[in-house]
Amino acid sequence: MKPGRSTAPQVGRGAKVRAAVHAATLAELLDKGYAALSVENVAQRAGVHKTTVYRGWKDRDSLLTKALAEHIAMDIPVPDTGAIETDLRALARSLVQTFTSPTGQAILAAMFTGAAHLPEIAAARRHVFGDRLARVESVVTRAIERGELVRDTDPAELFRTLAAPIYLRLLITADPVDEATADQAVRVTLAAARAGALRSAPDGEPATG
């Protein structure tokens, strides 16, 4: 065996390949950063041939986008606790736990620092957070059905309000980020939503409280 060759076992097709390749992508991102990420290294780490990767993902940035979206979808599941406050608390704490982990820090670095100016990374951000907004819509829908929120509460505005103070600390101020941060974000978000400040605006009109 040549020096530097992977000893990872070959994996099968389908879902196992996708899982192995996505895990390898995140591992490469964590170890080497976005600039050094390559299809060849991902394939070697995943135990598949690079042509297998190219059949499922057209290029490196497509691979990264899908891996990020899948990781966040799994790492930040949509809660269903029976109450909007505990749903939002679970969601906010999951955000904190995910993005303060080593892998989460690598994801943030890829999406918001060195490679942030690249169109592919901007597309990855939109894909990842668009997916998160779509998934959290059910949390708001259930809360409206239970009478906990006004009927025209905008799920996207609610999630942005919840996530904003967490990302502010992670990306701008570098203040500590912990469960207390998450819980405060929930209190502010619920106060705004119950005051009617997060309602959907009619087409062509700005949202107002």
Rank of each mutant, 00 (worst) to 15 (best):
R13T: 12
S94T: 00
P9Y: 05
L171H: 06
T81L: 01
T141D: 15
L95S: 08
K50F: 04
R135F: 08
E145I: 00
A24T: 04
V21N: 00
A115I: 08
A201P: 04
L30P: 09
S101M: 07
G14V: 09
A73Y: 10
A24V: 11
K50L: 04
A8L: 02
D131S: 15
A156C: 12
A124N: 00
R93D: 13
V53C: 02
E157M: 15
P165Q: 12
K66G: 14
R160D: 13
V96M: 01
A20C: 02
A201H: 11
L26P: 02
A191D: 14
A69V: 15
F112G: 00
R55I: 08
E120V: 14
L168M: 12
R18T: 15
Y34C: 05
L198D: 03
I121K: 08
E137K: 10
S94C: 07
G196Y: 06
L91R: 04
S62E: 15
L158V: 09
H49V: 10
A73H: 08
S38I: 09
A24Y: 07
G82S: 02
P206S: 08
L29W: 02
D178F: 12
G104C: 06
R194M: 11
T65F: 06
A174P: 04
K16P: 10
R126F: 13
H117G: 15
A83I: 03
Q184L: 13
T86L: 07
F112S: 04
A46H: 06
A23C: 06
G56E: 07
P119N: 03
L162W: 02
R89A: 12
E145T: 03
L37M: 07
R151N: 10
L63D: 08
Y54I: 03
A69R: 10
I144R: 02
H117Q: 14
Q105T: 13
L162M: 09
P176T: 13
A123I: 11
T52H: 05
Q184Y: 12
A8C: 03
Y34Q: 05
V17G: 06
G147V: 03
A191N: 11
S62H: 15
D131Y: 01
R55H: 15
L64N: 04
L95A: 13
A207I: 03
T153L: 07
L158Q: 03
A69K: 05
R5E: 11
D59N: 15
A156G: 14
D59R: 07
R93M: 13
P102F: 15
H71G: 00
A116D: 06
S38D: 10
G147Q: 07
S138K: 14
D59E: 10
G147D: 09
Q10K: 14
A46W: 00
R169C: 09
T173G: 05
E137Y: 02
S138H: 12
Y54V: 04
R55C: 11
A164E: 15
P155L: 04
T65L: 00
D203H: 13
E28L: 02
V21C: 03
P165T: 07
